[in-house]
């Protein structure tokens, strides 16, 4: 299944799964390039990637990667991440099964008359906030699961969607324990 091997068994037998991985790393220079390079170099998918330093005093960052592939490839991705020198831990939030995933969307919509009213009504239904307004435009802020954001963008398209910025998925497990 490894794309690196020309002797690989043909793909397609195993179903593609989407997994959210939480990777705790030492925030040293180049660590993000290292992780991204692993994915591109070995032909793995990145659906979404979020990274920020989460423990400043220890210089630790949490990288949240949403990836997709057959189960064997997902296992490889985790093993490959785990053996990287600056990686503390890799947690497969899809396997632990109790994770909350959120994404932040900023979306600019332009329109007049009924379109403005409709945009506000939809924003209200989705619990999006207006964070910028002019007489002919709004910028909405919306957090939620990826599919909710996708749906909101879809609805804004006929109304006058101008542009979109989104953060990618951040995720954390439920309950009192650290992962």
């Amino acid at each position: 299944m490894q794309p690196g091997s020309v002797y690989a068994i043909k793909e397609g037998k195993d179903k593609t799964e989407q997994h959210t991985l939480s990777v705790l790393v030492d925030n040293e220079p180049g660590v993000l390039a290292r992780v991204i390079g692993l994915f591109s170099g070995r032909g793995y998918n990145i659906e979404s990637l979020t990274v920020s330093e989460t423990e400043h005093e220890k210089h630790r960052s949490r990288i949240t990667v949403v990836t997709a592939g057959p189960p064997q490839v997902i296992e490889q991705i985790k093993a490959q991440l785990e053996r990287m020198v600056p990686v503390h831990r890799v947690i497969d939030l899809t396997v632990t099964g109790k994770a909350i995933e959120r994404e932040l969307l900023l979306i600019k919509v332009r329109g007049a008359g009924d379109d403005r009213v409709e945009a506000l009504r939809l924003a209200d239904a989705f619990r999006a906030r207006v964070i910028d307004a002019t007489t002919e435009s709004f910028v909405f802020e919306l957090t939620g699961r990826t599919d909710k954001l996708d749906q909101f963008i879809l609805l804004m398209q006929p109304i006058g969607l101008v542009e979109v910025s989104r953060t990618g998925v951040a995720a954390i497990t439920r309950g009192p324990e650290a992962t």
Binding site: S5, Y7, E75, Q76, A79, Q80, R83
Partner: peptide, 11 residues
């Protein structure tokens, strides 16, 4: 010694 070698090419 490398966990990523196990089950990489052969189960």
């Amino acid at each position: 010694i490398d966990p990523s070698s196990i089950n990489k090419n052969v189960r």
